[in-house]
Design a protein around this nucleic acid. Structure first.
Length: 564
RNA sequence: GUCUCAGUAGCUCAGUAGGAUAGAGCAACAGUUUCCUAAACUGUAGGUCGGAGGUUCGAAUCCUCUCUGGGACGCCA
């Protein structure tokens, strides 16, 4: 149902095929104000081409346009305002949704294929902070969105389970660690050790050297180092999976940095063969001056690898193993340079597919206007936030709907939904100032608001004994009051397409709020269940709204309880 | 210093590949429940779109310069 195209075709013929169809389609816009119709065509560009006044052109075109889908054409100055046939269009869209159900809005973009998504990627032995929430939640939503658009998503949790930090941690553990304490409360204890390391290292820089040497031992396969590492890793994963369960996030792979340990020699050899590796200050680098980028560090002066090396190995592995059509990296904006370098090095190596790698950056979670730092112990724990949000939801249920069944289950859906939605509703590049108060807000443009709208719509369907397979007895005569809602329903596929093309889940989040608002206004003024001929048609509309709201929320990784 | 992201209502943000009178939510104020869940709805108030030039019939949107803030810039990831 593409009315822009339809209008463009009509204009194309009327204008004697002077201007291409696609150009015309681009010129057509959606008026901001509803009273100006559903589509608008400004005639300024035509005026220039035809050397005629735009108002005159508008008048002439306005008289000639004839089509059953366009109910009314108004000429206002240089604008042609087109009104769609509300009844016809509404019946069509509602009919389509009833037929397709959750498949409504599914589409095929660019032929599909595998899309690897590098996401979440928390660091082992560190708490799962609010900072990791963003990557997790954005990546998860993108996976659903990309899938809706005909791709096969592969979610990879590229765990930070390797690197100098483990050298530091082992050093700290050997100096001050207590096995019992670690067993009892692993992440908290390991974090404390990590923080202490940095405090002491400020006075005694030799500690840094010890850290580096322990990491070298780890890389060389030292037994003691490996054992400690494995232990830290196991304990951390246990804690992480508790959080992923809470948020209902699953992964296709947990291949983290350590996984590429034995795959890096090959990368270094390839770089050597292609004569890209240059020694600089005893380290090995790839020069990227042609690309106007700083050199990419491949090996440290002590021979140990760096994250760039591992990311190169990972890129090769993913291409060979998953044959991706696209490879997304949902990683904070502060690493933009790193990904530019990574892609540039791969291109230098002659891999054209490096073009298909996309860094999906996002803004930072700030505390008091500043970056949160693990080292200084200034982190907010995601699990605590989720727990509080769920408790808040539970409290609200007790107050507003004490007879609800499965209160705990619903509280979880609502509490978690609030946190996820809060993260996804804005453009991902914006920094977010952490505010528990903001996150626990359940009114206005929030996840719970959308969920609540869905729940109420479901409630109406229950009371109206709505049966999906029974077509409406009669349709509405006008569809005037429901027009805002139906025209929004029509927009759903577009919102998904925009989200997929721009890799921006907020497009779906904003859409879902718009639809919820329109629907809330609608049923505040129209009695859906009123007994008359048009009742079943109204119920069909309500049903369509529930389908789209639920599917929209699903694409964001948020559940939709039928009662709350 | 170089690169990069951001600057729109008191606060948080929209603004769909330049269009007609710049929109929401929160907060404030005033209302709505014998009526499908008041986590809702209605109304009032709130703006020099950081600033200055430029391109255009038309700029919050594009270009240049500038101010402010965040981030990144070789042995951390």
């Amino acid at each position: 149902m593409n009315f822009k195209k339809e209008l463009a075709t009509v204009l194309f013929e009327l204008l004697g095929q002077e201007i291409s169809l696609t150009e015309l389609e681009l010129m057509i816009e959606k008026p901001k104000i509803a009273s100006r119709g559903d589509l608008a065509f400004p005639c300024f560009t035509l005026a220039k081409l035809k050397r005629k006044s735009p108002n005159l052109i508008a008048l002439e075109l306005g008289e000639k346009i004839q089509s059953p889908t366009f109910e009314k054409i108004e000429v206002v100055g240089a604008y042609l305002n087109i009104f769609l046939n509300k009844k016809e269009v509404s019946e069509k869209i509602v009919g389509e949704i009833i037929k397709k159900k959750a498949l409504f809005g599914s589409q095929e973009l660019e032929g599909g294929g595998n899309v690897t998504i590098d996401m979440s990627s928390p660091n082992i032995a560190k708490p799962f902070s609010m900072g990791h929430l963003r990557s997790t939640v954005i990546g998860n939503a993108l996976a659903f969105i990309v899938e809706k658009c005909g791709y096969e998503p592969i979610k990879i949790n590229h765990l930070g389970d390797w690197g100098t930090q483990f050298g530091k941690l082992i050093t700290a553990y050997k100096l001050w660690g207590d096995a019992e304490k670690v067993k009892q409360n692993p992440i908290k204890e390991l974090l404390a050790l990590y923080i202490k390391f940095h405090e002491v290292a400020e006075m005694d820089p030799s500690l840094e050297d010890q850290g580096r040497s322990w990491f070298k031992k780890l890389e060389d396969g030292d037994e003691e180092a490996l054992q400690l590492w494995q232990w830290f890793r196991d304990e951390s994963l246990k804690e992480f999976s508790r959080i992923y369960d809470l948020m209902n996030v699953q992964f296709d792979s947990y291949a983290g940095e350590a996984f590429y340990n034995d795959k890096m020699d090959r990368v270094v050899k390839l770089l050597e063969e292609k004569q890209l590796l240059i020694e600089s200050d005893q380290a090995q680098v790839v020069e990227l001056t042609d690309e106007q980028l700083p050199p990419c560090l491949i090996k440290k002066s002590d021979g140990a690898t760096l994250y760039a090396t591992r990311d190169l190995a990972a890129a090769l592995y993913r291409k060979e193993n998953y044959k991706f059509a696209k490879s997304l990296y949902v990683v904070g904006h502060e690493q933009s340079l790193h990904f530019k370098q990574l892609i540039a090095v791969l291109k230098k190596m002659g891999y054209a597919w490096a073009e298909k790698m996309v860094h999906v950056p996002f803004g930072m979670m700030l505390k008091d206007g500043k970056k949160m730092s693990t080292r200084k112990g200034k982190v907010v724990l995601l699990e605590e936030v989720l727990t509080e949000s769920i408790a808040m939801a539970r409290h609200n249920i007790e107050e507003k709907n004490p007879n609800l069944a499965n209160k705990d289950g619903v509280a979880k859906q609502v509490g978690v939904g609030a946190v996820i939605f809060h993260d996804l509703k804005n453009n991902r590049m914006n920094d977010i100032e952490f505010s528990l108060e903001e996150m626990l807000r359940f009114e206005g443009e929030t996840g719970p608001y959308v969920q609540y709208t869905f729940a109420r719509a479901c409630s109406i369907l229950r009371k109206g004994n709505w049966q999906t397979d029974v077509p409406p007895a009669a349709y509405l005569s006008g569809w005037e009051k429901e027009w805002k809602v139906t025209s929004l329903l029509m927009e759903f596929p577009n919102a998904i397409k925009r989200a997929c093309e721009n890799l921006d889940p907020s497009q779906v989040a904003k859409y879902v709020v718009d639809l919820a608002q329109a629907f809330n206004k609608y049923y505040a003024e129209v009695k859906v269940l009123e007994e008359n001929v048009e009742r079943s048609a109204r119920l069909a509309l309500v049903y369509s709204v529930t389908v789209v709201l639920k599917e929209g929320l699903r694409l964001l990784g948020i559940e939709a309880p039928e009662e709350m």
